[in-house]
């Protein structure tokens, strides 16, 4: 069974200790600046001067590096190629590939967009690595987010590994009945129903029973909810959040400034 259901890595660091909302604001600010600040190299600098140092400060750099190189880099590269090939801008053709023209402008454009996406996903990764989902939701609920909404978010985060585990059991059960899932594509296509059927029906039963189970534990109680975790929110955090907001406004303003 899956013991780890979240990306979160339990460590003690300055970043871990920040209020979850501060971290959320931080990554959103980084993303907004990367997309709005009207300087070509802005995303690159954010990555080098903000995200990587924050990862080191948060003591999650090895994990961050692993995710970045294995997951984010290939995705950003793919985006870069797509945009470079299919973005019909600019005159300065560098080379031709059959009917596709690669211009310097399209190359630059693609590169910046890929970097922006890289920054966005890296920032989120950093956030997930240093923030426990329960803490985030407790904090947001305390600030007025409806608990039902928080529940939906967390249970959705948890449902994927669960569905995966369940799908594996179902596949095991059907293979035990002689269903060949290892051979040709055609055969595999024919084996979809035996695999999907129990998954869907099982989920219907599960949803009903789970609704009963959480209702039995006061989920819709009108009492004011409390939280197991105390999530500190010192004035330092508030200061950071307001400063970040200021930076974002500056960045957007610079973007809109008629040049």
């Amino acid at each position: 069974m899956h013991e780890r259901l979240s990306f979160h890595i339990k460590r003690d660091s300055v970043i871990h200790r920040l209020n979850p909302l501060t971290k959320l604001v931080l990554i959103l600010a980084l993303i907004l600046i990367a997309f709005t600040f009207p300087w070509y190299w802005a995303p690159h600098f954010l990555l080098l001067l903000a995200i990587i140092p924050l990862g080191i400060l948060g003591r999650v750099f090895p994990e961050f590096f692993k995710t970045a190189t294995r997951l984010i880099l290939p995705a950003a590269s793919f985006l870069f190629l797509m945009q470079a090939f299919f973005q019909p801008i600019g005159e300065d053709v560098i080379f031709k590939f059959y009917f596709l023209d690669i211009t310097q402008e399209s190359l630059m454009f693609a590169f910046r967009n890929a970097m922006r996406v890289f920054v966005m996903v890296s920032a989120f990764t950093l956030f997930l690595l240093t923030t426990h989902p329960s803490e985030l939701m407790s904090d947001l609920t305390r600030r007025g987010l409806p608990p039902q909404f928080a529940y939906v978010i967390i249970s959705t985060l948890q449902i994927l590994p669960q569905m995966q585990a369940k799908a594996q059991t179902i596949i095991a059960a059907q293979r035990s009945r002689g269903l060949d899932t290892e051979s040709t594509f055609l055969k595999r296509a024919g084996s979809v129903l035996p695999l999907v059927g129990p998954l869907v029906f099982g989920s219907l039963v599960e949803v009903e029973e789970r609704a009963i189970a959480i209702e039995a534990r006061g989920f819709t109680s009108k009492n004011v909810k409390t939280s197991l975790y105390e999530i500190p929110d010192p004035s330092f955090d508030k200061f950071i959040r307001w400063s970040l907001l200021g930076l974002v406004i500056l960045s957007i303003a610079a973007n809109l400034w008629p040049s």
Partner: peptide, 22 residues
């Protein structure tokens, strides 16, 4: 099906109902 799905540890899971009723 009785696991709330909203919690990551057994301790949190058991506290879930108490959080709900304040």
């Amino acid at each position: 099906n009785q696991i709330s799905g909203a919690k990551y540890t057994v301790f949190e899971e058991i506290a879930f109902g108490l959080e709900n009723i304040g």
